[in-house]
Lab assay of single mutants.
Amino acid sequence: ERVRARYDYEAQNEDELSFKKGDIITVLEKDDGWWKGRNGKEGLFPSNYVEELE
């Protein structure tokens, strides 16, 4: 599954994923509120910062 970033997100910890608004992220795992994904790097990000691609 792929999602698009709705906002910029700056990683707060080294296991998190940074991205810019409009970036496409491949979702690897979904957990409550935090998803694991890849966009060149791999890490956790808040699920409310992304939207599913149509």
Rank of each mutant, 00 (worst) to 15 (best):
L28H: 03
E52M: 13
E14F: 09
E10I: 13
Y7M: 13
S47I: 08
N39S: 11
L28A: 04
T26W: 11
Y49R: 07
E29S: 15
D32V: 10
Y7S: 08
G33V: 14
K21F: 05
S18K: 01
R38M: 09
D8V: 02
R4Q: 07
I25N: 04
A11L: 04
S18I: 01
K21C: 08
D32N: 15
R2A: 09
R38F: 15
R38K: 11
K30P: 02
A11S: 07
I24Y: 10
K36I: 10
E42N: 06
L17I: 13
G22M: 05
E16A: 03
Q12M: 12
N39C: 13
R4A: 06
R6E: 04
D31Q: 15
F19D: 00
F45K: 01
G33R: 13
D23H: 05
L53I: 14
S47W: 10
K20G: 05
E29N: 12
E10R: 09
T26G: 05
E51G: 06
D23T: 07
Y49P: 02
E16S: 03
Y9K: 03
V3I: 05
D8M: 03
G43P: 02
W34N: 04
A5L: 02
G40F: 10
N48Q: 14
N13G: 11
A5R: 02
L28I: 13
F19R: 00
R38H: 12
Y9T: 04
D31V: 15
D31K: 15
K30S: 05
S47A: 14
S47E: 08
W34M: 12
Q12L: 10
D31T: 15
R38W: 15
E42H: 06
Y7I: 09
Y49S: 08
L44Y: 15
E10M: 12
K30M: 06
I24F: 09
E10C: 14
G22D: 06
Y49E: 00
T26A: 08
D15L: 14
E51M: 08
G40A: 09
K21L: 07
F45L: 03
E42P: 06
P46V: 02
E51W: 06
G40S: 09
F45W: 01
G22R: 04
G22H: 06
R38Q: 09
L17Y: 01
E29I: 11
N48V: 11
A5P: 02
W34A: 04
E16L: 03
L17N: 02
S18C: 06
F19V: 01
W34T: 05
E52S: 14
K41S: 12
D15N: 15
V27D: 03
Q12D: 07
E42Y: 08
A5M: 04
E51Q: 08
G40E: 11
E54G: 13
G40Y: 10
A5C: 08
R38N: 10
D31G: 15
L17M: 09
E52Q: 14
S18Q: 04
P46Y: 06
E1S: 13
R4E: 05
A5W: 00
L28V: 10
R6I: 15
V27Y: 01
R4F: 05
N48F: 12
R38P: 00
G37K: 01
E52R: 13
I24H: 05
R6L: 15
L44C: 11
F45V: 04
K20D: 03
E42R: 05
E29P: 03
N48E: 14
R2Q: 14
D31M: 15
G37N: 03
K30T: 06
E29H: 14
G22V: 03
R38D: 09
E16Q: 14
E10G: 06
E16H: 10
D15G: 14
L53V: 11
L44M: 14
D8L: 03
K20Y: 07
E10Y: 13
N13D: 08
V50I: 09
K21A: 13
N39P: 00
S18H: 04
R4G: 01
K36S: 04
D15C: 14
R2W: 11
N39H: 14
L53A: 08
D31A: 15
D23Y: 03
E51H: 07
E16K: 01
G33W: 14
G33Q: 13
K36C: 10
F45Y: 00
D15P: 04
L44G: 07
D8P: 07
P46T: 01
P46A: 05
V50F: 05
L28S: 05
E51I: 08
Y49T: 07
D32C: 13
Y9D: 00
L44H: 11
E42I: 15
A5T: 04
G22I: 04
A11W: 03
W34E: 02
L53P: 06
S47L: 07
R6M: 14
F45P: 01
D23I: 04
